[in-house]
Structures are given as structure tokens and as C-alpha cells.
């Protein structure tokens, strides 16, 4: 036997879930232009006894590449992550390849984390060439041969969806993701390019409309149930 209270609590549950989904939609929308951002979806499902619940899923599909022609911008083609070591010594993984050089001459990520185990650039050089397997070559002066000074490592995970999202456009290894596996022979790195976010803005608009409709109809039913409640209590009139 269902009660009015039960119906109302189900609808409130639905509204809360829809609001949470809207939160993820807006965070995706806000990160439309974030380099290498991976869209997040709040997937709702009917749990046991028709109770709504949801899980967060990460869309790991690659975004499109944007040519920037900056020497230290790299984009990853296909799957994979670049390991970086932050100031605390933790190893994080990122696909955001907008690298820079810090005061000690090391190649660092946006948040000042060393790329790989640390690749040191000399103070004086003419040109940097990063080949498709991540090898960093520099040319000291014009017409001089290129010298190899390091390699940007690329790792892959068995289950990239299991990675935990950390601060500053990075991810952390978890039990569910499996161990990182270093790729040796590959051709994934593109110099002078950045990977754009994989968010589809138009799909998000559609999503917003649907969630909005769901919330509005839920609140509308709550109103009707509330009226019925009132009328039932005041039956002796």
C-alpha cells in the first residue's frame, strides 16, 4: 500500500537526483574550454525497491586537437596519460600537455609539477623538437644537430574509467584502474597541439531541458499530492 508520504518522498528523491545531474551538467559546461577535460556524467538508475541512486562516470573518449604551435604544448592522440610528479612528490597523471619551464629549467605542468621524472632544459637553446614517441630533442644553435635530453613518458591503464579525478586537471591511480603500464614504442605525442575537452555542448543543452522537465513535473505532482492531502484531512467540511 502506497501512502501520500511515500509518493512525495519519491518525488523529492527524483528532484534531488535531477539537481545533482544538473550540477554535473553545469560543471561540464563550465569546462567546455578546459584543455583535455573529460566529461563527467551522473548516471541515475532505479536501485532495489525502486529507490533512485546514481554513479558518476567519466567519458574517457579523446577530444579534438587544437593547433597552438607553441613548442612546449603536447597533445596525446588516443588513450594514455602523462605521469607528473607534484611538489609533494606524489605521482599524478594528466592529459593536459600545456607545459612550461620552471626557474630550475625543468619542464613542468601548469601546476608546477615535474613532467615524468624531470626533464631539464639548458638555459640557452634554439629550438625544441618533441617527436611522436615523446623524445625531447634540443638544438643548441642554428644548424647544429639535435641532442636528446629526455623523454616524456606515456602510460596507459587497463580501466581508465576507474581513475580518481584529482585537483588541477589530473587523475590519480586507484585500485579499480589497475596499475599504470609504461608505453615504449608508440606514436601518440603531437607537439604544438593541445587536446580540447571532449564535452558536447549541444548534448548538454538537451540534457538540461530534459532534467528541467523532470524537476518541474515532479514538483507539480508534489503540489497535487499536497492538495489531496489537505482535502483528505478536511473531509469533514
Amino acid at each position: 500500500m502506497t501512502t501520500i508520504q511515500g509518493s512525495i518522498s519519491k518525488l523529492v528523491d527524483n528532484s534531488n537526483n535531477s539537481f545533482q545531474s544538473l550540477g554535473y551538467v553545469s560543471s561540464n559546461m563550465a569546462n567546455w574550454n578546459t584543455t583535455s577535460y573529460k566529461g563527467q556524467r551522473f548516471e541515475t538508475f532505479m536501485g532495489p525497491e525502486n529507490v533512485l541512486s546514481g554513479v558518476v562516470r567519466i567519458d574517457t573518449s579523446p577530444g579534438s586537437n587544437l593547433a597552438t604551435f607553441r613548442q612546449l604544448d603536447v597533445a596525446l592522440e588516443g588513450t594514455g596519460y602523462i605521469p607528473i610528479t607534484n611538489e609533494k612528490g606524489e605521482i599524478l597523471y594528466t592529459r593536459d600537455g600545456s607545459f612550461a619551464v620552471n626557474s630550475d629549467g625543468y619542464i613542468v605542468s601548469k601546476h608546477n609539477a615535474l613532467v615524468g621524472g624531470g626533464i631539464k632544459l639548458p638555459a640557452n637553446y634554439e629550438r625544441i623538437k618533441i617527436s611522436t614517441d615523446g623524445t625531447v630533442n634540443i638544438q643548441k644553435e642554428k644548424y647544429a644537430p639535435f641532442e636528446t635530453i629526455g623523454k616524456i613518458p606515456v602510460v596507459v591503464f587497463q580501466n581508465p574509467e576507474g581513475l580518481e579525478i584529482a585537483e588541477g586537471n589530473t587523475v590519480k591511480e586507484t585500485e579499480g584502474s589497475g596499475k599504470p603500464e609504461l608505453l615504449l614504442g608508440h606514436a601518440k605525442i603531437r607537439q604544438g597541439m593541445l587536446e580540447r575537452g571532449n564535452v558536447d555542448g549541444y548534448a548538454l543543452v538537451n540534457e538540461t531541458i530534459k532534467l528541467n522537465g523532470s524537476i518541474i513535473s515532479s514538483t507539480r505532482v508534489i503540489k497535487i499530492l499536497d492538495e489531496i492531502y489537505k482535502e483528505s484531512i478536511n473531509l469533514r467540511q
Binding site: T2, I4, G6, S7, K10, L11, D13, N14, S18, S21, E43, T44, F45, M46, N50, L52, K210, L211, G213, S214, S217, S218, V221, I224, L225, I228, S232
Partner: peptide
């Protein structure tokens, strides 16, 4: 009859909750 209408509303209510659920 009032009870019946309330139970029917409950079914509708369930459908509205399931509106944006995959495979509902």
C-alpha cells in the same frame, strides 16, 4: 474511489520519476 485515485497517481508518479532514467 479516493484511495484508488491516489494509487493511480502513485503509478504516474513512478513514471515521472523514471522519465529520464535509461531503459525505464
Amino acid at each position: 474511489a479516493m484511495h484508488l485515485q491516489q494509487s493511480i497517481i502513485d503509478i504516474t508518479n513512478q513514471n515521472i520519476v523514471g522519465f529520464n532514467k535509461v531503459g525505464y
